[in-house]
């Protein structure tokens, strides 16, 4: 609970109780790294916010622009794509493709009128439970600042 408490304290300071926005974040996690890291976080008792809904993907290179858009269309406040470290993709270049697609989608989101920072890609190895948790915490902070998905308004 320590980490959760930490960010809660940080984020909720100055806010009246019960008004803090709890974003829903879809996290596409690669089976070979981030998903395993999330697993490891569990074994190591490292907490990360419950705001993320993890979807396991065989490789981030499998992800399409349409998947990210659908997540937002269906109400996600943020989308996190977590792939292997650059150079460490199980399929050589899947994470590099994912990075390009994420960047393309960020531009498209701007055209649509949704803040591009709602979509982010991070890179972690299967051993990096702590960095994964930190990335998730940081994403939650970003989305809290941005507020709810404007499509829900």
């Amino acid at each position: 609970m320590q980490i959760k408490d930490e960010i809660d304290k940080q984020e909720k300071s100055g806010e009246p109780a019960g008004t803090v926005f709890e974003p829903k974040i879809v996290a596409f996690c690669c089976h070979y790294c981030a998903y395993a890291a999330a697993d490891l976080a569990g074994s190591m008792r490292i907490q990360y916010p419950a705001n993320v809904r993890i979807i396991r993907t065989p490789c981030t290179g499998r992800l399409e622009v349409g998947y990210f858009l659908k997540a937002f269309e269906n109400g996600a406040d943020g989308v996190l794509v977590a792939g292997c470290l650059e150079g460490g993709c199980h399929f050589q270049e899947g994470n590099l493709l994912a990075k390009k697609r994420v960047n393309y989608t960020r531009k498209l989101l701007e055209e649509i009128g949704v803040e591009e920072d709602r979509l982010r890609m991070v890179n972690v190895s299967a051993a990096e439970a702590r960095p994964l948790a930190d990335n998730i915490i940081d994403m939650v902070k970003t989305i809290r600042k941005l507020g709810p998905n404007p499509l829900k308004g």
Binding site: G66, L69, K70, F72, E111, I112, G113, V114, P150, L151
Partner: peptide, 9 residues
């Protein structure tokens, strides 16, 4: 998808 979202906004 993009048009659905943009038009809603």
């Amino acid at each position: 998808s993009a048009l659905r979202m943009a038009s809603k906004l």
